[in-house]
Amino acid sequence: MDRDDRTFPQQSKRDFLKIVLGGGFLAWLGAVMYPVFAYLKPPVQGEVEVRSVKAGKVKDIEKESGAIVRFGNKPVILIRTSAGEFRAFGATCTHLDCTVQFRKDLGVIWCACHNGKYDLNGRQVAGPPPRPLNEFRVVVQGEDVFISKQA
């Protein structure tokens, strides 16, 4: 028997132990780290899904105005145009998440954070916003103005 033949079974035994111990260590590491990483992820909070909210009365909302309305836990901007028409959009700027506002002097929906501008149809017209604002439906029932999600 030469030397190589003698070391061969030794070597394979060593490899086997390396795999078992190394694998065991990795499994142990996984078992320790998994709960930690899972803990870091915030749980999804059960919320009441809001489909529609009452935004106010027609006579209280001036023409050429805009106001933030609470829609569940998101802000929605309700616009009344100079023609008296109501429109509603998600008030979260599509650029970097700031809350937009109506600018009467400019006749646009404006985001103060990075000077993004949207027209009164929610389409981005100037500045960095990449997408139009989310559109909401406005329903006027008698005197009351309701905002609801697009069907």
Partner: peptide, 10 residues
């Protein structure tokens, strides 16, 4: 205020 627009000059 979570439901106020971003103030001008931010």
């Amino acid at each position: 205020d979570l439901f106020a627009p971003a103030p001008a000059g931010i």
